[in-house]
């Protein structure tokens, strides 16, 4: 019987295109109270390998991505049938209950893409839930790892340098550390100001996933977008890489260092701000940002470190993002 079923499953792939419609995303699994064991339980993808998104699972990209050890990231939005996310100016899209955000992390290894993990954010009736799934070596199945995992990995970054790291899949609590506002889980990435790339917002509106294409007044540029103002790129980089914790309601609220795109008070973004609880993270420097002096700024010191007692962000980085550091160095060097 089991054999018969698996034969059917294999044939099912061949027949599905013509003979019958593929199964839609499993809304009941998204909304259930449990912790689904397998990524395939949700049916976000038509294939077991996590590459072909199902209906209403739409890929998107961010102008300015979070740096995650040079991993390639594949992001998808799912909004249940008959519903829409609401656009709210430049800010975070408001997703209805039943929505999901899916993000796969991978590297090109020996010329082939290899997925390491897929993180899902599920909007349940009692709020958002963040869960990490780790792919097997065969790339056929991703399994829930609430406690996270370290994966030894060797890869080349885009400039060709080789890195040997213990890639960190975050545990469920670490997902929340970044995704928490006032203690509740929330999405971070899909803010309209960071989604303007390639007419993407118009596309999402046309597909009916969002209610309208919002007018974005102050978009976030990509970090490598040389034509964008340096200040916008630097502030965008801090917003995307730091501000999920470093905001007044975030995990780093006690630091008083608030790095959101909207923040206007110089001392709050670190300018001539003394550390609160940095410990040896201070690197013997007095200020988070010493204007004109990147080498004397705690911010640069911590972004350049790989020591867990020093490095920032605390989660999700085991190599230095040289290009990001160079951007912030230039920004600080130009301050008076």
């Amino acid at each position: 019987m089991r054999l018969l079923l698996s034969v059917c499953a294999v044939l099912g792939l061949a027949f599905s295109a013509g003979a019958r419609a593929p199964q839609p995303v499993a809304d009941a699994v998204i909304l259930s109270g449990g912790l689904p064991k397998l990524l395939s339980d949700y049916r976000f993808f038509k294939d077991g390998a996590g590459w072909q998104p199902n209906d209403r699972v739409v890929p998107y990209r961010l102008n300015m991505p979070l740096f995650s050890d040079y991993a390639e990231k594949y992001r998808f939005i799912y909004v249940p049938p008959g519903q829409q996310a609401k656009a709210d100016g430049d800010g975070l899209l408001a997703f209805p209950v039943g929505s999901a955000l899916i993000k796969s992390f991978g590297y090109e290894i020996d010329g082939k893409p290899r997925l390491l993990e897929t993180r899902v954010l599920l909007h349940r009736a009692d709020g958002w839930l963040a869960l990490p799934y780790v792919w097997n070596a065969e790339q056929t199945e991703a399994r829930l790892k609430v406690a996270g995992q370290r994966i030894p990995l060797t890869f080349n970054d885009p400039s060709g340098r080789e890195h040997e790291i213990d890639y960190g899949v975050p545990n469920k609590n670490q997902c929340k550390e970044c995704h928490a506002l006032s203690g509740a889980v929330t999405p971070i990435g899909p803010k309209a100001r960071n989604l303007t790339h390639g007419g993407q917002l118009a596309d999402l509106a046309r597909l009916g996933l969002i209610d309208k294409e919002p007018a974005v007044d102050y978009r976030v540029p990509g970090w490598g977008e040389a034509s964008a103002p340096l200040n916008d790129r630097a502030r965008g980089y801090l917003d995307v890489n730091c501000a999920h914790c470093h905001n007044v309601n975030g995990s780093a609220s006690n630091s008083g260092l608030f790095l959101t795109y909207e923040e206007t008070m110089p001392v709050r973004i670190g300018i001539n701000k003394r550390p609160v609880a940095a410990g040896r993270g201070s690197g013997t420097h007095d200020f988070d940002i010493a204007p004109g002096d990147p080498d004397g700024s705690i911010m640069i010191y911590r972004l350049n470190s790989l020591d867990p007692g020093i490095s920032m962000p605390e989660v999700g980085r085991t190599v230095v993002h040289d290009e990001g550091v160079a951007l912030l160095r230039a920004w600080i060097a130009g301050m008076e």
Binding site: D166, G168, Q174, K176, E177, A180, P308, E314, T318
Partner: peptide
């Protein structure tokens, strides 16, 4: 042998 996180144990 700690590889990551800013503390040994975090309680939230």
């Amino acid at each position: 042998g700690q590889l990551g996180a800013g503390e040994g144990l975090l309680v939230t």
